[in-house]
């Protein structure tokens, strides 16, 4: 297993895109507190603002870092097929489950480190503009930031699973962008049509929408026309997202063991 981890770590390190993705994620996330600081550093900070600043707008705009780390996850398996390296890889490391486990562990570790670094950078930015980061280590911000870490990890693993499931990069990218941004948004939008209100009870099972509950300090606002979606609590909603990731990875893993390389 150590050999597999060494392999994956070398694979990640020798790929330029890894640096680009992590770097872009950190910069895009840091841009949010910088913009907030420039626009509103004279206003007092409340919990929502601290949360959004430190998570880089993940719970408000787009989860930048999660998206970039998901691409790293997609590349972890998708690149192997796209560039035909899966055969050399499996002749260097023929135990397939060990290889997948190593990929999961390295992507998870890298995402965790990148997320913690990003939060540290963003907290520092807040400190520079406001001179303090109120309530960083107290609930609700503390739980929301732990949730943000979990959200990024699950998001990256969904990417890894999709890359392995589709055995390529483009289709996995399409799904990971289409699903949260278009399909789930459309679904939530449909519940606002009075005749389709009965769909509302299913919203709490939409994986990406449920996953966002992990990062919130106050209930999500879907607009005045939205029915009550009756979400599970933070960690149970995160569980919905995690189950989704586990299903994708599980299916991909089983297929990977069965299929020809």
């Amino acid at each position: 297993m150590l050999d597999a981890l060494r392999f994956e770590w070398t694979r990640l390190r020798t790929l330029r895109s890894t640096y680009w993705m992590v770097g872009s994620g950190l910069v895009a996330s840091a841009a949010i507190p910088v913009v907030l600081g420039l626009a509103a550093s004279d206003e007092p900070l409340h919990a929502d603002a601290v949360n959004i600043s430190v998570n880089g707008g993940a719970s408000f705009v787009i989860p930048f870092l999660a998206v970039f780390m998901a691409v790293v996850g997609i590349f972890a398996t998708g690149h192997e097929y796209r560039h035909g390296t899966i055969q050399p890889t499996l002749t260097a490391l023929p135990q397939r489950s060990r290889l997948i486990l190593a990929k999961i562990l390295t992507v998870t570790a890298l995402t965790a480190v990148a997320t913690l670094v990003s939060m540290a950078i963003n907290a520092t930015v807040v400190l520079v503009f406001w001179g303090e980061v109120p309530g960083l280590f107290d609930d609700p911000v503390r739980s929301a930031l732990l949730g943000y870490l979990a959200y990024n990890l699950i998001y990256a693993l969904v990417g890894l699973g999709l890359g392995l499931l589709f055995r390529g990069v483009p289709s996995a990218l399409v799904v990971i962008f289409l699903m949260p941004l278009i399909i789930e948004t459309l679904f939530v939008g449909l519940t606002m049509v009075p005749a389709l209100e009965w769909l509302a009870s299913a919203v709490k099972f939409l994986p990406f929408t449920a996953g966002e509950e992990l990062m919130l300090t106050s209930p999500a606002n879907f607009g005045p026309a939205a029915p009550d979606f009756d979400f599970f609590d933070r960690w149970a909603s995160g569980g919905v997202f995690a189950v989704f990731a586990a299903l994708i990875i599980g299916a991909a893993w089983i297929l990977f063991k069965k299929r020809d390389a």
Partner: peptide, 16 residues
């Protein structure tokens, strides 16, 4: 991989 140098390609396989 098209942008991973020959040496790094071998390094990756060697590390396993």
């Amino acid at each position: 991989h098209p942008t991973r140098s020959a040496r790094n390609h071998l390094k990756m396989l060697a590390s396993a």
